[in-house]
Every structure is written in structure tokens, then in C-alpha cells.
């Protein structure tokens, strides 16, 4: 199997503000969000990062997408270092997260062309890809509607197609089905499976067990910024369900669930 993503000892700490210190009743000034995290993802597989809120999943994905820099460690996507070649990394990845928004004034049609140009996609290729993706997701009927007037589901679809406008090798999704209705969620998960069949590598973060069981080939369980367990789903769970296995691991690390 061809290794497409390799994270090596990623570490990220954040400074706690006085307000945060007060709220959390702590004297510590720095918080470790991700602690020496290592994992690999291969071509044509969906890799899931599973963990509770605040475990460091989103921070890990933000480091992989070069929006933030790790304090220690490095990661390689299609052989490009996030530390040394962030611009080249951005060319081979598509990143979708609720943090990245689309300007409400513009239409999906305009934004697709704009972000295509941002990734240096040729006009003819861009036009063909727009036709294909807009039709696939039913965006074509809304292509001239301002983004601010789209429904949440349609907006999520538009965000999805724009994040992969340049046909990236690695697709990084932070909570891909969050806030979606069941129909849109199904469209998104089906498309992720389609991307896998096309040989793309997908890394997603989630706290939804069923999503991991349905989609992921391999999974990494993160708690308090550390990779506690990792492997193929069957290998990791054995006879247990993912949920039961996760809580067994969680209890061994954090004690009882409160």
C-alpha cells in the first residue's frame, strides 16, 4: 500500500488566556492540544480520527492542512512536508471544516471558478469539473443563487465541491456530516466512498461511531491529544462494537465516564 499521509510526532500547545484559566480553575498557562501524534494513511483508504470533543482531532487536521504549524514534529502529504513546503501541501489537499466559510455575496458558480483559479486549475478542466460536480450534487439549479440564500444542506454541498475543486489526492474533512439532514449526510458519505474508489486518501475526524463503522478502513482513537489506539477497524474492535471498544479504552485512560 502506498503511504500518502505520514504524521510524525506532531505536537501543538496553546496559551491559555486569563479568562480560560479562570473558567477552568487552573494555574497552567499552556495546554497541550496534540501530544506527539503519529499515524499513516494510505492511498485509497478512509482514515478516521475518533475522539471526544477537545481531544485534538481538529487541531491535528488544521496542522495537516497547514493552517497552523506544529510546535514539534512534521507530517508529509504526498511526500511534501507541512513544515517546509506548506504551499505544495495545500495544492494536494482539499480541506473542509466548518471554520472555513464561503462569502455569502457570491454564487456557487463564481466561487467554484474563483477557488479553481486559486489552485491554478486550467479553465477547460475547471468547466468540465464544475459540470460534473454540480450535476452530481444537484447544485446546478442553484449555481446562480447567492450563497447567503442557500439552505444549510446545499451550502454544505457547495463547500464540499469547492474544497475538492482541484481534484486533490488527499481529502481532509472535519466532522463531515455535522449539522446535516439525513439526506445530505447520505449524499456526503456516498461521495466519500466514491472518492475512495477513485484512489483518493481521505482523513476525517468525527465523534460519531456509526460514521466510522460505515466508512473508515482504519481508525485512530485520540484522547487528550494522544493516539491511544490505532489500526484496522476489525483488528481494533475484535468481537466488540466500536462504541464498546472506545469506552473500554476511554475508561482505561480517563477512568469512569462522568
Amino acid at each position: 500500500m502506498e503511504e500518502i499521509v505520514r504524521a510524525e510526532g506532531l505536537k501543538k500547545t496553546f496559551t491559555l488566556s486569563k479568562k480560560q484559566q479562570r473558567i477552568e480553575r487552573t494555574a497552567e498557562t499552556r495546554r497541550i492540544a496534540v501530544d506527539k501524534l503519529s499515524f499513516s494513511a494510505y492511498r485509497g483508504e478512509i482514515y478516521g480520527l475518533l475522539g471526544p470533543n477537545g481531544a485534538g482531532k481538529t487541531t491535528t487536521l488544521r496542522m495537516l492542512s497547514t493552517l497552523i504549524r506544529p510546535d514539534e514534529g512534521d507530517a508529509f502529504l504526498c511526500g511534501h512536508s507541512i513544515m517546509k513546503e506548506p504551499q505544495r501541501v495545500r495544492d494536494v489537499i482539499g480541506f473542509m471544516t466548518s471554520e472555513l466559510k464561503l462569502e455569502g455575496f457570491f454564487t456557487p458558480d463564481y466561487l467554484f471558478d474563483f477557488f479553481g483559479a486559486m489552485h491554478g486549475v486550467e479553465k477547460a478542466t475547471l468547466a468540465a469539473r464544475k459540470r460534473e460536480l454540480f450535476s452530481r450534487f444537484g447544485i446546478d439549479k442553484f449555481s446562480e443563487v447567492q450563497v447567503k440564500n442557500l439552505s444549510t444542506g446545499m451550502l454544505q454541498k457547495v463547500s464540499l465541491v469547492i474544497s475538492i475543486v482541484h481534484d486533490p489526492e488527499v481529502v481532509i474533512f472535519d466532522e463531515p456530516t455535522n449539522g446535516l439532514d439525513v439526506i445530505t449526510a447520505k449524499v456526503v458519505t456516498d461521495f466519500l466512498e466514491e472518492l475512495r474508489q477513485m484512489g483518493k486518501s481521505i482523513i476525517l475526524s468525527t465523534h460519531i461511531f456509526s460514521l466510522v463503522e460505515k466508512l473508515c478502513d482504519r481508525v485512530g482513537i485520540i484522547i487528550d491529544g494522544r493516539m491511544i489506539a490505532e489500526g484496522e477497524l476489525k483488528e481494533l474492535c475484535g468481537e466488540l462494537s466500536l462504541e464498546d471498544r472506545f469506552f473500554n479504552i476511554y475508561r482505561s485512560v480517563k477512568g469512569d465516564v462522568q
Binding site: R88, E103, M118
Partner: peptide, 17 residues
């Protein structure tokens, strides 16, 4: 405005220098 709305981040996530 773009920074506050999160649309500047979307541009920063592209490979534009």
C-alpha cells in the same frame, strides 16, 4: 469583515502565496 466571517481563512487554505 472577511476575517471575522471566516472567508479569509478559506482563501488562506488554498495554495495562493
Amino acid at each position: 469583515g472577511e476575517k471575522e466571517r471566516g472567508t479569509l481563512s478559506t482563501i488562506l487554505a488554498t495554495s495562493a502565496p
